[in-house]
Amino acid sequence: MADQWSIAGTRGRIAGRTWTHDAPRYLAVLVHGYGEHIGRYEHVSAALGRHGAAIVAGDHMGHGASEGDRVFVEDFEDVVTDVHSVVEHGRRLFPDIPTVLIGHSMGGMIAARYAQRHGEGLAALVLSGPVLGSWRQTTSLLDLAEIPFTPIDVSTLSRDPEVGRVYEADPLVWHGPFKRTLIAALDTCLTTINHGPRLALPTLWVHGEDDQLVPLPESRGGVDRIKGDDFAERIYSGARHEVFNETNKDEVLADVTGFLDRALS
Rank of each mutant, 00 (worst) to 15 (best):
A123M: 02
V252I: 02
S237Q: 13
Y167F: 13
V173R: 13
I235A: 05
R70K: 08
F259V: 03
V214S: 08
R165L: 14
G121E: 02
A169Q: 14
T99V: 14
L182W: 13
I226M: 09
V87W: 06
I38F: 04
D250I: 06
G64C: 11
E162M: 04
P202I: 14
F76E: 03
D22A: 11
R262P: 00
I235D: 09
R50S: 08
P177V: 05
V243D: 10
R159M: 12
M109A: 15
L253N: 01
M61C: 07
D224K: 00
T20H: 12
Y114V: 04
H89I: 04
G238T: 03
E120D: 15
A8T: 15
W19E: 07
H51V: 00
H21L: 02
S155V: 08
T156N: 14
G39K: 09
D3E: 15
A53G: 00
A239Q: 05
A115Q: 07
I38N: 03
V80N: 01
G119E: 06
V223Y: 13
V86L: 09
I38M: 13
D229K: 06
D75T: 05
D3I: 07
E246D: 04
V29R: 05
S128C: 02
F72G: 00
L144Y: 14
R11W: 04
G68P: 03
S219E: 05
A47M: 04
S219M: 01
D78L: 13
T99K: 10
A169I: 02
R25Y: 07
E168M: 12
P130H: 06
G33D: 04
F259G: 01
G64M: 05
P215H: 03
L144H: 13
G62N: 13
I110C: 11
V87M: 15
A115D: 12
D211I: 11
P98E: 11
E246P: 00
V206Q: 12
L201E: 00
